[in-house]
Design a protein around this nucleic acid. Structure first.
Lengths: 290, 290
DNA sequence: CAATATCTCTGACTATAGTCAGATATCATG
DNA sequence: CATGATATCTGACTATAGTCAGAGATATTG
């Protein structure tokens, strides 16, 4: 009754029936689920027909018919792709947007209803994040992004906040050697964000210097994504990027208040070296030759 | 991207596709999902046809046909109910049990595969428990049970373990006035267990005494079920049971190291009174007139 | 014991999802 | 510009799930 497998299966049962309830509420709008799914995919910004088909895993014949039924309802319009007339592009009409908004309202109401069940909202959300990250683990994409992008800035903000909580003396970015964004852009360096669906859940930066090495900076993994070995994946990705940029020597600094980081570096071929900068926060320094 | 609603919806998407994957693996056994569900319901001990139909929400015509198809496969046998020949009772044949075991193996493998994604198994399981309890909140049943039943003993074990963690001096049941099980059975008292599906997730005892009052004892809610206001529901149930037994005065003791308990009592009509026993653990005493 | 209720079953039907083989239009390439 | 590749569409088909009206057997009740 309490073994791990039973607990997972209890979770499966609970969640299956909740998912079914949402489908039922969608059916309440008088449209088969297939058509509703296509409408929602378009509403969420997918316009290329092949893309929608791929996303929803539909056969091209079925997809075509679903689109036709949405067109008959005057919810969707299709036109040829502007530079490949074989492809079709779907957009919502005015009433299509209204109908999409109604589905969104149903989804949002269901989500709110769920949150309202619990008096400790944040704990519930953290549990959901943890499970969502675990389930989508194999679909987490590591994308190179501009360090000034919204996704990167989100990660950096969380990273600084966490340092502030974990360092006994707090953390003030301005006292640290804030890496200039341009040093973390190709060709000097790069910045990699781990994306789970549209949610940034981790990052790492590679900062070019003029001293014969590049620095790995800002390695961070969202609390909900810890335990998924994402730190390791990010480090592998940043090392690959460095190799790609022709960099042969990497350095990084960290703090012994972050033991899981030191642990990771030591177990992946990094060698501890003496202090190589005068940043006030780090007390541990590593180097790796590629 | 990070507002609560989006987080819930990200969770929904992740979980929907995981559920779909399990369905697909079930289809791999060459049988439609409807038939597989009936087979599994029987395998899990549901034998009464009406009960299965009700559990799976099936129309009687559809149910009948699904049973027929399982009979044709020689996986299921049906016979008349022994004291109502209108009802039918389904049982698995030898090969039905084999096939059921194969489905169980698929479910278990999926559950194990999920757990294997994460290096902090217990955190993942705790998150799943929390969500499963929240989703099934409205189906949590409060059942009167024997305090010696497996369910009750499970709850009590967890309760004592938690007291041990929360009291600075630890907790040793034998030093406390261990309430005799017979005082927590009708007609002297009762014992109520909160069941989520087959999982006990909370309890409370009503212990009859010969001093003109009854005591509320052993109020416990599983960590995964906290925040669902289950403590409140258990207290209401135990007060109802006391009224039902003609009891007019209730007392209880607790400890200030359990602030959420004291909070609950104060907000539900309990009045603090002076110490009324010599148990070494409690330091707060309450009374409520029904 | 007749009337009524309950349980299961059968036949006839619909809706949805999905498959598959071409047909058609367009694009890319030598 | 012929050829093959690609994207979409149509028609014809199947499987599954589900609905509904009644039939037949059995149980319950006044």
């Amino acid at each position: 009754m309490l073994d791990p497998i039973s607990r997972v299966r209890r979770f499966n049962r609970a969640v299956t029936s909740a998912v079914g309830a949402l489908d039922t509420s969608f059916l309440g709008r008088g449209r088969p689920l297939g058509a509703a799914r296509v409408l929602n995919a378009i509403g969420h910004g997918r316009s290329d027909v092949a893309d929608i088909r791929d996303y929803l895993g539909l056969d091209s014949g079925l997809m075509s018919r679903l689109l036709r039924s949405l067109e008959e309802e005057a919810l969707v319009e299709t036109e040829a792709h502007h530079d490949d007339a074989r492809r079709r592009v779907a957009t919502l009409t005015r009433s299509g947007r209204r109908e999409f908004a109604a589905y969104e309202a149903l989804s949002n109401a269901q989500a709110e209803g769920f949150l309202a069940q619990h008096s400790q909202r944040e704990a519930l959300l953290a549990a959901m994040d943890l499970i969502a990250s675990t389930l989508t683990r194999e679909r987490i994409a590591l994308d190179e992004m501009d360090p000034r992008s919204a996704e990167a800035r989100h990660c950096l903000g969380e990273y600084y906040a966490e340092l502030g909580r974990r360092f006994s003396q707090g953390f003030d970015v301005s006292r640290s050697r804030d890496p200039d964004a341009k040093d973390m852009r190709r060709p000097r360096g790069t910045f990699i964000v781990a994306m789970s669906d549209t949610l940034p859940i981790g990052c790492v930066g590679l900062k070019g210097t003029d001293h014969g090495y590049a620095e790995v900076k800002r390695l961070w993994v969202a609390p909900s994504a810890r335990g998924l070995r994402l730190g390791r994946r990010l480090m592998e990705a940043v090392e690959d990027a460095a190799r790609d940029l022709g960099i042969t020597l990497l350095r990084l600094d960290t703090n012994s208040a972050l033991p899981e980081a030191g642990q990771l570096y030591r177990s992946t071929g990094w060698r501890e070296i003496p202090r190589f900068n005068d940043d006030p926060y780090p007390d541990l320094f590593f180097e790796k030759r590629l």
